[in-house]
Design a protein around this nucleic acid. Sequence first.
DNA 1: TTAAATACGATAAATTTTGTCGGAATTAAA
DNA 2: TTTAATTCCGACAAAATTTATCGTATTTAA
Lengths: 133, 133
Amino acid sequence: MLKLTRKTEYALIALSHMQRFTPKNLISTKELAKLYQLPVELLAKTLQQLAQAEILEAVKGAYGGYKIKTPLEQINMTEFFEVLEGEVGLTDCHTNTDCSQKNLCNIKTPMQKINKKMRTFFDEISLKEVVGN
Amino acid sequence: MLKLTRKTEYALIALSHMQRFTPKNLISTKELAKLYQLPVELLAKTLQQLAQAEILEAVKGAYGGYKIKTPLEQINMTEFFEVLEGEVGLTDCHTNTDCSQKNLCNIKTPMQKINKKMRTFFDEISLKEVVGN
DNA sequence: TTAAATACGATAAATTTTGTCGGAATTAAA
DNA sequence: TTTAATTCCGACAAAATTTATCGTATTTAA
């Protein structure tokens, strides 16, 4: 349980590769997909999201591609996850005003505490740590 | 992201209620479902799982129901989650020998470290803490 | 014997994730 | 200026998972 989605996994694999092998140079989606046998289209979207979040720098056009823009030590896992998936937390009591439980819910306050703890947990892990090298 | 499933939420709601209002007495699935407006059948299965795991004690037959068997302070969230959903972890590199990435995967070792950390994180939170009271 | 409960497997419905397709915009190089 | 290689983006299809329902068996107090 609490598994990452493929998209996030693909992102980590891509970042790990860039970090190790092409930190200064561009690498294209196609190339990455081939290297790690990932579905090109999905990887493409993932990298686009990372570019929007300025984790990657995108260079369009022929001979374009991506490279790491923000040093991975400066990005924590909460931020990273939230670029690709929604808000980090075991529930979305906080955000979601129209929780079906409404006033019946008896675990709201404790869940909010755990969610906070969890965010802190992932805040303290940098992307660099996860991506290795 | 990393959200709990409904089943786990229902389990927490049920446990919270029992802890507060019926720690000595039985309460039936039907009653709980009514109180918190939860789907009876799904709640039923959830409670059955908790009973199998000896978190709850089940009493069959008329006037039967459930009550807490193991004090909630003695159950940590890793254990609890794993009763209802699979193994806790962001990936299942460790368990799953036939990961599609196979030898191509470049994030296995760091992911295993994070997974371990995450388990430790949830090991240190007791069910009582989450269920409140 | 009956009614009220748990137990459990099968399956249907809904939702989410994953993957694909088609085209638009950009740009280096021929 | 044309072409080929790329990012970008929205829509949609397929697959997987989660959520809910149904039917039936078993248990047991009254």
